[in-house]
Design a protein around this nucleic acid. Sequence first.
DNA 1: CATGGGTCCTGAGTGC
DNA 2: TGCACTCAGGACCCAT
Length: 293
Amino acid sequence: MPELPEVENVRRSLQELVVNKTIEHVKVYLPRIVRTPDDSLRFQNSLEGCTILGVDRRGKYLVFDLPPYKLISHLRMEGQYRLREGTDEMAPHTHVIFHFTDGTELRYRDVRQFGTMDLVGPSDPLPSGFAALGPEPFDEALTPETFYRLIHKRSAPIKAVLLDQKCIAGLGNIYVDESLFGAQIHPGRTASQLKKHQVATLLVEIRAVLERAILAGGSSIRTYTNGYGRHGGFQIQLKVYGREGQPCFRCGTLIEKTRVAGRGTHFCPSCQPAPSRRRVRPRNFASERSTLK
DNA sequence: CATGGGTCCTGAGTGC
DNA sequence: TGCACTCAGGACCCAT
């Protein structure tokens, strides 16, 4: 589950490992990974002779600068890049290999096969999800006021809104739960009901959590490693994610796990009080009357 | 338009 | 021990 901190660490490792390498040829073993062009043979042929000038990140996407192309790669759940020697043993679930002229290879592995690659030329449209991305969390233009404007018209639970990449880019299930804990906001709270000061606190917490996670090398929950094969260390700093049944570090109440927005959701029922249930959708006239008293 | 549920996929975990 | 079953989730598709 690479989210922004993990993808950023992959980016940094690849920036060190593959910049200025020239592609001799590419081999795609699982065509479904390549979304564009439709034909993975064209993907292979186009990249022949291209040199990687840089590796950028936007949200959870890696962007390889391969003039005249951009290779836009999403790791989804378990995508992994590793630089290896051509003679190294092949790991299972290796789906795409970029062979470089110096005999090394950038190998893409993905057990669940959810990851995607889009190769776009200068006049090609960007992948729709990429084009629609909201602001980067660390963008200075994202002020508490602009963040409030993005959120206050949404009737969905705040957790669903934060997971929406069109609202803010790069957050996933882990860091949404951690940020909401930091801001002491219940994940099921209706986004539009949040006060301005809560939204401001939430932005501060999002940035703080992401910054610490990047510094720790990301969270290795299942299989995450960077381009060197190194695991991250932030999983031991998580305060709610994966800690159901364990005491809250702030107040000692046991952390609970529920479902919000279709996702496993961790929170402290004491630090993050649940929204009032009294006014939620009366079933019939009688119950409405009793609510109104 | 916004929202929410189903879908893709495989390995780990659970229960009998 | 073995097997069937459930769960995990990011983005996309689709119905409401």
